[in-house]
């Protein structure tokens, strides 16, 4: 079997997800054995422009430059994998969508705002067809491996459509609600093995919402625990600000 050519790209993002890949350790060696890595900023510096089998794209689209780059990558590559919440759902960047762009520009760049063009923050699939999604901020390494295996085998990857709570209980964590702390686990789609809760944090909902969340039910839970339901709205927005009604 010839090794497929693979490249990693980043649009507007913190490159934290690329770092996750670079930190894979032993698994990374197994991956490098199976693929021909041609572009990867964290590891390589060469930047050829030939056709690709698989392009991993991190980050969201925030301006015309990003948009042009994304289209160019899509043209070059057989498969396109959106990885990291910025790319899959807009992520933290999309918090900006809650406010007028000019206002944010003024806040960030002050009187230089004119010089930095910015548009509504969009996840990749709102602009080009995306073959695979790896949610998470940052991505969960085990899931990256699963998706890569699926892509190499030309099979779809089914993202779990149940709550983070499932994986949380499998890890036998004491529930955050027991500790009177708000956790977005019940409405966030699983796949990260409840990473944050395993490490003593709450779930921030970085993987996006399950396909049919019970919002009213979730709010009732918060009020029962005397937690502010605006909090959950805000928290949901933290990662899900770019979602359109047509998105899952």
């Amino acid at each position: 079997m010839s090794r497929p050519t693979v490249a990693f790209f980043e649009l507007a993002s913190c490159e934290g997800c690329q770092l996750q890949v670079a930190n894979l350790g032993e698994e990374l060696l197994a991956i490098l054995d199976r693929i021909d890595l041609v572009e990867f900023r964290e590891l390589l510096t060469e930047r050829p422009d030939g056709p690709l089998d698989i392009a991993f794209v991190e980050g969201s689209v925030v301006n015309a430059e990003c948009e042009a780059r994304l289209h160019a990558i899509r043209q070059r590559s057989e498969l396109l994998i959106a990885y990291g919440s910025c790319a899959t759902i807009g992520g933290v960047n999309a918090m900006a969508n809650g406010r007028p762009i000019s206002e944010i520009q003024a806040e960030v760049y002050g009187d230089q705002a004119e010089r930095f063009a910015a548009a509504r923050v969009r996840p990749l699939h709102q602009l080009v067809p995306v073959d695979y999604f790896i949610h998470g901020c940052p991505i969960y390494p085990d899931e990256l491996i699963k998706v890569l295996k699926a892509a190499l085998a030309h099979l779809p990857y089914n993202i779990p459509d149940y709550a983070v709570c499932v994986e949380c209980l499998l890890n036998e964590n004491v529930c955050m609600y027991e500790k009177k702390v708000t956790c977005l686990g019940p409405v966030t789609r699983a796949g990260c093995n409840a990473w944050c809760i395993n490490n003593g944090n709450v779930c921030y909902g970085c993987r996006g919402l399950v396909s049919n969340p019970n919002r009213a039910g979730a709010e009732a839970v918060l009020s029962r625990y005397h937690l502010d339901s605006r909090l959950i709205a805000n928290k949901m927005l933290m990662y899900n600000g770019a979602l359109e009604p047509t998105d899952e």
Binding site: Y162, V166, G217
Partner: peptide, 12 residues
Amino acid sequence: AKCLACGNCTNA
């Protein structure tokens, strides 16, 4: 109307 379909009740 209350259930979040989290599946904890069945896993537990």
